[in-house]
């Protein structure tokens, strides 16, 4: 693995806070040229460390009232990827993680009203391959979307730390 130096780390830190920061501004902040920032950014992209950038939305801002998380177990012998595709196509599902172990999927749904929860339950009940669906976490406060891809600063520092 290629080492991550302080300039790379600083570029990532700045862009994690605001992905739209112009490279020229980052260059000025770090005392390097715009072309250096551009080159470093491209390299981090090529290495796959940076896989993109996204906008962070407020769940309440876009009209969601709350969310639920579920663990899903699929019948042994059935196609897990086929079930994954069906789940991903249910409108309320905005996060889906493939698991290995006791459960096969972790999924998150957001809803605007109770009718949407009902629609979700109906959709899931039609999937014959699912043997268990365990509801886990529920919250109704505001939360940032997407939930799993935005990293807390503390986690970011930890990611940087062990790159050797």
């Amino acid at each position: 693995m290629n080492a991550l130096d302080e300039i790379d780390a600083e570029i990532i830190r700045i862009l994690c806070k605001d992905a739209r920061t112009p490279f020229s501004k980052i260059g000025k902040m770090l005392g390097v040229g715009t072309d250096t920032v551009f080159r470093r950014f491209k390299k981090l992209e090529q290495e796959g460390k940076i896989s993109g950038s996204t906008v962070i939305l407020s769940s309440i801002g876009i009209g969601l009232k709350g969310w639920y998380a579920f663990y899903v177990k699929v019948k042994p012998g059935s196609s897990i990827s086929a079930v994954g595709e069906i789940l991903a196509n249910i409108p309320q599902v905005y996060g889906l993680v493939k698991l290995f172990g006791e459960y096969d999927f972790y999924l998150e749904i957001g809803f605007r009203d109770f009718k949407e929860i009902d629609t979700f339950i109906t959709s899931v009940r039609q999937i014959k391959e699912i043997v268990t669906i365990d509801p886990m976490i529920h919250a109704s406060h505001d939360w940032p979307l997407p939930t799993l891809s935005t990293l807390q600063p503390e986690v970011l520092e930890w990611l940087f730390k062990c790159v050797t």
Binding site: L15, A19, S51, T54, I56, S58, G61
Partner: peptide, 10 residues
């Protein structure tokens, strides 16, 4: 509505 923008890291 938009809280900000961020990188997606692997």
């Amino acid at each position: 509505i938009i809280l900000g923008t961020s990188l997606i890291l692997d």
